[in-house]
Simulated assay, not measured.
Amino acid sequence: MAWIVLVISGLLETAWAIALDRSAGFTRPLPSAVFAVTLVGSMAGLAYALRDIPVGTGYAVWVGIGAVGTALVGMLALGEPVNLPRVACLLLVVAGVIGLKLFA
């Protein structure tokens, strides 16, 4: 169960990062509210997962999911550049996250 919560928390990290960008420095109420709610949910899920998962592994997986998710949203929906080196680097992050799960 802890791993499922950790993955969901990582996805919420992606949501709060995108909402933070869209909040324009907290000048837009709806993205600012989405940021706050998803941030709290993400942190609460991480805290729950860390009861059963070692902190180094859990935090790295959480950050990896959030970073890859945010980069993918940026490339697929927000017009950020998509090129082979960027995709290769994201795949390396994914490989690291999978490795941490397998060898936890």
Rank of each mutant, 00 (worst) to 15 (best):
M1T: 07
A2W: 14
W3T: 00
W3P: 03
V5C: 06
V5G: 03
L6T: 04
L6E: 03
V7S: 07
I8W: 14
S9R: 01
S9L: 07
G10N: 06
G10T: 01
L11W: 13
L12A: 02
L12E: 02
L12K: 00
W16M: 01
I18F: 10
A19E: 03
L20K: 02
R22C: 08
R22A: 06
S23A: 07
A24W: 15
G25F: 14
F26M: 12
F26A: 04
F26T: 06
T27Q: 08
T27N: 11
P29R: 13
L30C: 03
P31D: 08
P31N: 05
P31V: 01
S32Q: 10
S32Y: 14
A33M: 11
A33N: 07
V34K: 14
F35A: 05
F35H: 08
A36I: 13
L39W: 13
G41V: 04
G41R: 09
A44C: 11
A44P: 07
L46E: 07
A47F: 14
A49K: 05
A49H: 06
A49T: 11
L50I: 08
L50A: 01
R51T: 08
D52Q: 11
D52L: 12
I53V: 13
I53D: 02
I53T: 01
G56K: 11
T57W: 13
Y59E: 05
Y59I: 08
A60R: 00
V61E: 05
V61C: 04
W62T: 00
V63R: 00
V63E: 00
G64A: 13
G64K: 15
G64W: 13
V68M: 06
G69A: 10
G69I: 13
T70V: 04
L72S: 00
L72T: 00
L72P: 03
V73Q: 02
G74E: 03
M75L: 07
A77W: 15
L78G: 06
G79F: 12
E80K: 08
E80Q: 04
P81A: 09
V82K: 07
V82R: 08
N83Y: 15
N83F: 15
N83L: 14
L84P: 12
V87T: 03
V87E: 00
C89G: 09
L90P: 02
L90T: 02
L92E: 04
L92G: 03
A95S: 04
A95V: 01
G99I: 03
L100I: 06
L102W: 15
F103Y: 10
F103I: 04
F103Q: 02
